[in-house]
């Protein structure tokens, strides 16, 4: 089973507009947590696809101002965040990961 491929397809269903965020959450969140076995992805892949899942816990249709300060996304913001990161990740998985951990290493 190519879990990376399955997860990527789901992401592109959201980015392309085929799915909305609620449908993406339904299809992606549980699949990543419960169907993808530990060790089946590389470290950068596990981190990236895990972050996509985790960010869904910080996404709501209309977060209030305080929640936005706390780090919450609305749906368009989540899609935008995902578009940027998916592109960077697709271009260079290792580079994306190094950049990701540099944020809190320094």
């Amino acid at each position: 089973m190519d879990y990376k491929d399955a997860l990527t397809k789901k992401i592109y269903n959201l980015i392309s507009g085929k799915w909305g965020v609620p449908e993406f959450e339904k299809e992606y969140y549980r699949y990543f947590l419960e169907q993808v076995p530990e060790g089946s992805l590389t470290l950068p892949q596990s981190t990236f696809y895990g972050l996509v899942q985790e960010k869904l816990d910080w996404t709501a249709e209309s977060p209030n101002e305080q929640e936005k300060k706390d780090g919450w996304f609305n749906y368009p913001e989540y899609i935008e965040w995902l578009k940027i990161n998916a592109q960077l990740f697709q271009e260079n998985e290792e580079g994306w990961y190094k950049n990701h951990i540099r944020r809190f290493k320094n």
Partner: peptide, 22 residues
């Protein structure tokens, strides 16, 4: 002083996050 989010993480992601300093 505020609960600001809740959800699920894989053990692998938590473990890697501790190792890489997140």
């Amino acid at each position: 002083n505020r609960i600001i989010s809740a959800g699920l993480n894989t053990i692998e992601n938590v473990k890697n996050g501790i190792v890489n300093g997140r």
